[in-house]
């Protein structure tokens, strides 16, 4: 299992780097093209949007892995150690549930994009694969969220 995980994570990082770098370089190419060659990059707006999907949805999974989603933990939880553990479990399950909900609803969006053959304006790129990508990343995010819970519970049991 372990090697597969690290391979997946490495793949996710490469994809993220690629989208992020391309996002910046695309703007540069567009601006330079406009001034130096008097042509804009054809469809740069829609390419930017597709790269944004890559950055955002890879970023969501990466942020979950690093537990970077903003949590307000200033108020103490009642019922001490036990309360904290129950709350932690409930919170993770809830977050995973909401993530799964977002994944499912965006899957329906992808199916609709496929059915109607939605495409971009200038380049006519099909949108369905991009929306499926969103949904898949949200499903992965759900799995990562549950993985974190498993890790927490495991550590606590080991601790006892």
């Amino acid at each position: 299992m372990k090697p597969i995980f690290s391979l997946l994570i490495a793949g996710l990082r490469r994809l993220t780097e690629l989208c992020m770098a391309a996002l910046a370089l695309l703007t540069l190419a567009d601006v330079l093209g406009r001034y130096v060659f008097n042509v804009s990059v054809m469809g740069s707006v829609e390419l930017t949007e597709i790269l944004m999907v890559g950055v955002i949805f890879c970023g969501i999974v990466l942020a979950t892995m690093k537990r970077e989603h903003v949590v307000v933990d200033l108020l103490p939880l009642p019922f001490g150690e036990m309360g904290a553990r129950v709350a932690n479990t409930a919170t993770h399950l809830l977050a995973a549930g909401i993530s799964a909900l977002l994944a499912v609803v965006s899957w329906s969006q992808a199916e609709s994009a496929l059915e109607y053959g939605d495409q971009t304006t200038m380049l006519g790129l099909p949108l369905a694969p991009v929306v499926y990508f969103m949904s898949i990343m949200l499903f992965i995010n759900t799995a990562v969220q549950l993985g974190l819970l498993y890790k927490d519970l495991h550590r606590e049991t080991a601790h006892d």
């Binding site: 406009r34 042509v39 469809g43 740069s44 707006v45 304006t121 200038m122």
Partner: peptide
């Protein structure tokens, strides 16, 4: 090579046919 801001649809077709430097924003 005139730099024009355009939307999509017929404007995009028009931009191509008239050889303008289209900026779709």
């Amino acid at each position: 090579g005139l730099k024009l801001r355009i939307g999509g649809g017929i404007q995009a077709d028009l931009a191509k046919a008239l050889n303008v430097n289209a900026v779709v924003k």
